[in-house]
Write a protein that binds this DNA or RNA. Structure first.
Lengths: 260, 260
DNA sequence: ATTGACAAGTGTACGCCGTACACCTAACGT
DNA sequence: ACGTTAGGTGTACGGCGTACACTTGTCAAT
């Protein structure tokens, strides 16, 4: 009896083991299926046992984010700001692609853990070290937004593939009908969707996410570079990125109602 | 009795009424507090009654997104693509700011409703009408990402205000201690946070979101414009936005593992 | 060797959630 | 007058996070 007990509960659980199991489980079954009960079961333990090691589910999620951050490579040394930032973002993206749950969790978190703050601080430091003014750095961080973490909303390309995912299971004539329907109702979507697919299937299976991500990233980095060169490290009243837009002088109020 | 019944249940509920109530309730109590039960209660009805008008909660959320999309102004006529896109995005942003739940719901949705597809189609149409090649339009849509909806992850500026939200409730000496702590651990965050606050409080109360949003938007639009001018409407093998980055020639594989 | 404190795991229970399913009931076309 | 049916009801199930009281295994101090 005691021997069996000794055999079954060899390792006494610990915070790290809980955390690691949570990451693995989320990787495997998705974040929406990660429940305290399921996690406990995976660890061969009763649900409430977890609460001896994490305060609650929120804290668990925060810790999972920390684990993710720890996977991001530190900034490379001896390179210009642009390459440094670029590589760091792509490293973050790598971590994110390894952990599909991370995007959603990152989006939902409001409290920043020390690890997250540390990553941001280091990120900001890359621009400052590159000679960016504090103000420009501020704007630039906003412009990057979630791209800092290696992702952006992919609201578009799921639908660029259209109902492709669902389509394949349908009989051919229904596919054709749906295709005609789409061509009629969403001609523009169809144009870019078919153009981005270089094979001749009705609707291509999406596009190269990595290419698209880097396209946007480089577009931003090039923009940053121009602004940086433009007023090197001086700090005028307010940076104005756009020369062409008429409303740019007073950007705070436009078509939206007052936002005090 | 019948008279009372007639008085209490005057309007027989209908899909539209459910939907409208859901939007109002989400506006008021937040999306996380919007449950079928709560919504039913608000309508003076038993929870299961709702299921006679919406299939399930998913569909309800989809419909709420549709309602949001319907609030976005149509594209302005007789303007260049740049202004057209700019105004449309800012209109979407207006709708989003009026409905704080929308961002999260939009992020979580995977199925695109016809209204959403219609919005995207119209959005794509603005670029095509502006003479953008189909390929460039595709990339450009990706670069915009969720900015098309008028939002981006605000992962940064919550923390730029630092623990400001929590700070105010603390005694002054604790504030000072925390400030020193932050200054030591996150010097860079502190620099941009204090710089962006133009008052002399320890940590400014964030920055002008609207300005930051438009900063990034215009940065992108200017970038699009340059690419557009660069190879007007021709479609070379693949558009390459960055001239400087060494890895640009083959962007699909970098530091991340293979993504087939 | 005994004890007693304490950390770790257990069991039960509560209130929330979405929703399946059987039921009632009032209005309406025939 | 009557069957159909759309719309509202009641009950119930399985899942969730977690509060709280409990056992149990471990080890330091007596």
């Amino acid at each position: 009896m005691t021997q069996q007990a000794e055999r079954t509960r060899r390792i006494p659980l610990s915070r790290d083991r809980v955390l690691a199991a949570a990451v693995v489980l989320a990787d495997q079954v998705g974040i929406e299926a990660l429940s305290m009960r399921r996690l406990a079961q995976e660890l061969g333990v009763v649900p409430m046992a977890l609460y001896k090691h994490v305060a609650n589910k929120e804290e668990l999620l925060d810790c999972m984010v920390d684990a993710l951050v720890s996977e991001i490579d530190p900034p490379v040394r001896d390179a210009g700001w642009k390459d440094t930032v670029r590589l760091r973002v792509l490293s973050a993206r790598g971590a994110l692609l390894r952990h599909p749950w991370a995007r959603q969790v990152l989006e939902s978190r409001t409290n920043k853990t020390p690890a997250v703050l540390g990553y941001m601080d280091s990120f900001i430091g890359m621009f400052l070290a590159g000679g960016f003014s504090v103000d420009l750095t501020h704007h630039v961080m906003h412009a990057l937004g979630s791209r800092m973490w290696g992702f952006t909303q992919e609201l578009f390309d799921d639908s660029a593939g259209g109902d492709a995912a669902g389509l394949v299971t349908l009989p051919p004539e229904a596919q054709a009908a749906m295709f005609r329907e789409m061509a009629e109702r969403y001609p523009n979507i169809l144009k870019v969707a078919t153009a981005s697919a270089h094979q001749d299937s009705v609707v291509g299976q999406g596009c190269d996410d990595q290419f698209e991500f880097e396209f946007a990233l480089d577009l931003l980095l090039d923009g940053f570079e121009r602004l940086h060169r433009q007023h090197w490290s001086s700090t005028p009243a307010q940076t104005s990125p756009a020369q062409t837009s008429p409303a740019q002088t007073s950007p705070a109020q436009t078509s939206t109602p007052a936002t005090p």
